[in-house]
């Protein structure tokens, strides 16, 4: 196991700064830890180092369960569109554990807001390229995650950032699978088209209302009737029709600030954003969708180059 002193960073806890002329930045803070940019002193490569958070849980459960599982899954993944964990590094005290990962200039959100061409919509070919990458990465994650899944296991609903959280999770569905991720991908697809998050709820209830406003209230849907009846729900939801077609114009060249969307693209978007998780398209099937086989050829986005 390599020692932490192979890396340089301005973060004192990672130790050893000698090689860097100026501070290397704090990149981001994820659910499980802070991410730092650092230099591998052995290879001079710039890497991202994520420090695992050790909260009060540490005193009750040893190495944090969430981190243990995340590390296990990330180490199992090997895909060109997924950031790879190169190795784990330990510091001088028990709470200093770091994941060394590939470092990228920017994430997708930064690319949308600050990358080259940020002021104009993505070309359809660029959106298609990114969607294929995201879906193929998700298909890989799903295939690996099957190894770790626990049948009929009740799980927490407090997963996924609110704006990307599937509606069934907002209604406390505790038995869920990869379909919650394809919902999130649908949200990202919409976001790529208009360069703005499509469902920006301010709380769980507001999120539900925004979802039903965009996609219509699920009426005459067996899944939702069962879920609501199981929960003894007393809420009455206002009946809305789907607003998706009005929000995402098909075959439109107007200057609405939206990327061009073919009918195939709209069909894929609506299948990803299916309110019924059982009818939601899987990542594997989405990759076989005509959106990818017909129409314009995919193109590497400008910010990649």
């Amino acid at each position: 196991m390599p020692k932490a002193d192979r890396w340089s960073s301005d973060e004192e806890e990672i130790v050893l700064l000698s090689l860097l002329p100026k501070p290397i930045s704090h990149l981001d803070e994820g659910t499980y830890g802070v991410v730092w940019k650092a230099r591998d002193n052995a290879t001079q490569e710039i890497v991202a180092i994520k420090q695992i958070k050790f909260d009060s849980d540490m005193t009750k459960e040893g190495f944090p369960i969430s981190a243990l599982r995340e590390i296990g899954v990330l180490l199992s993944l090997s895909h060109e569109s997924i950031v790879s964990v190169r190795e784990m590094v330990v510091g001088s005290t028990p709470d200093k554990v770091f994941m060394v990962m590939d470092c990228f200039e920017m994430d997708l959100q930064a690319a949308m807001k600050k990358g080259p061409g940020a002021s104009t919509p993505f070309a359809q070919s660029e959106v298609k390229y990114m969607m294929r990458q995201i879906l193929s990465a998700m298909a890989h994650v799903t295939s690996i995650a099957r190894k770790y899944e626990h049948p009929a296991r009740n799980m927490t609903q407090m997963v996924v950032t609110l704006w990307y959280r599937a509606p069934e999770l907002l209604f406390s569905e505790s038995c869920y699978g990869p379909e919650i991720d394809t919902w999130s991908i649908g949200c990202i697809f919409g976001e790529l088209l208009i360069k703005e998050a499509i469902l920006k709820g301010t709380g769980e209830l507001d999120q539900i209302q925004k979802i039903f406003k965009l996609l219509g209230t699920p009426t005459d849907d067996e899944y939702w009737e069962q879920l609501w009846s199981k929960q003894g729900s007393t809420f009455k939801w206002k009946n809305n029709d789907s607003d998706l077609a009005r929000t995402f114009a098909v075959n439109s060249f107007s200057a609405t600030g939206q990327s061009y969307l073919s009918p195939d693209g709209f069909d894929l978007l609506s299948r990803l954003l299916s309110l019924n998780p059982k009818k939601r398209i899987t990542a594997e099937d989405a990759l076989r969708h005509s959106y990818f086989s017909c129409g314009v050829t995919e193109q590497v986005p400008m910010f990649y180059v």
Partner: peptide
């Protein structure tokens, strides 16, 4: 536990 995880390079699946 920590020594075990380090020894296994955190590969415990």
């Amino acid at each position: 536990e920590r020594i075990l995880l380090i020894g296994l390079s955190w590969r415990c699946h």
